[in-house]
Simulated scan of single mutants.
Amino acid sequence: MIKKTHLASVLLLSTISIACNNTTQSESKPLDVSPTNKEIKEQLSQDDLALIKQSNLILEKLSTEDTDKVKNELKAFIPQALKIKNKKAKNTVLMNIFVQSKMYPEALELTDSMLADHPDNAGTQKFKCLLLKNINRTDQEIKNCYAITASLVKTQLNQIDEMDSLHPYILWAYYSAMYHAGGDEYKNKLQTIVRTQTDENKKNQFESMYEAEMSEQQLP
């Protein structure tokens, strides 16, 4: 069984891969500000870097310390996170805090803001659908959300060659969105992608993704 703490990143794997040219940092991981990540570091001021590192240190405690205590520490850090000037970095830090602290309505509001800036980001759109599930919105609202995701992914699918190594991931993202939008027949299409993989590592990867797609899809 896939751990719930990794569910969001598993579900977003395909759309993050296909939208690598315009996607934000994954909503479920600390922002990488290590010395080797020059692209990120060059965009950030020293003050921003210091705040992001503080946030990452708190997030790392989730695996070793009392969860409730760490959640309270994350919530207390929100005023500091709001001081981050780089909008992309600030959104990532805030999303980490909101998701790990189960502040899903706040996460949804932030997601809508991110989509207002980048309405073609399929990864962010799909994450919105996951949030809607976790705050128990109506089935129709959730299906409509996934229908929008499918439309965004379809645009990218039409622009990539079938021989491109990313094609199966884009196709997966499209089938997944269509399945969650109410197209039950796309479940078989997802199974076909898993079954037809000849590379063992990729097959294991798609099997994990399939398990996540068929799960209750609860955030941490």
Rank of each mutant, 00 (worst) to 15 (best):
S113N: 14
K128Q: 08
I52N: 07
I78M: 03
L44K: 01
I58K: 02
L62P: 03
N96G: 02
Q156V: 15
I78S: 04
I52L: 06
L94M: 04
D117N: 09
T149F: 01
N96C: 09
D48L: 06
E60W: 08
K154N: 13
H118A: 15
L51F: 03
A89V: 06
N134C: 07
E60T: 14
Q140K: 11
I52Y: 05
V153E: 01
V70P: 00
E141L: 10
N134D: 08
K128I: 00
F98C: 03
D112G: 10
N91F: 12
E60S: 12
N158F: 06
C129I: 02
R137K: 15
K133L: 13
D48N: 03
T155K: 07
S113L: 14
A50F: 07
D47I: 12
K133M: 13
K83S: 09
S45F: 04
Y104Q: 07
T67H: 14
T64M: 06
K88R: 13
A150L: 07
L94T: 02
A81Q: 02
K87G: 02
K61W: 00
E60K: 10
H118L: 11
S101E: 00
D47N: 13
C129G: 03
L152Q: 13
D68C: 00
P79Y: 11
L157G: 05
L110M: 04
S45P: 08
L82R: 11
A116H: 07
E73A: 04
I58C: 01
P79H: 12
Q159G: 04
L94N: 01
V99R: 00
K90I: 04
Q156M: 11
L130R: 02
A50L: 14
Q159F: 04
E109C: 14
K154Q: 15
K71W: 05
Q159W: 01
N72C: 04
K85H: 11
L110N: 00
L57M: 13
Q43N: 13
T149L: 01
L152E: 11
T64N: 06
D112C: 12
A116P: 01
K154T: 11
C145I: 10
K90G: 03
L59G: 06
T149Q: 08
Q140R: 13
K102T: 10
L132S: 10
Q54G: 10
M95Q: 02
D66M: 01
K126P: 00
H118E: 07
N72Y: 03
Y146S: 05
S101W: 02
T124I: 10
N144C: 07
I52K: 08
K90Y: 00
K61E: 00
I135L: 06
C145F: 09
N144M: 12
V153N: 01
T124G: 11
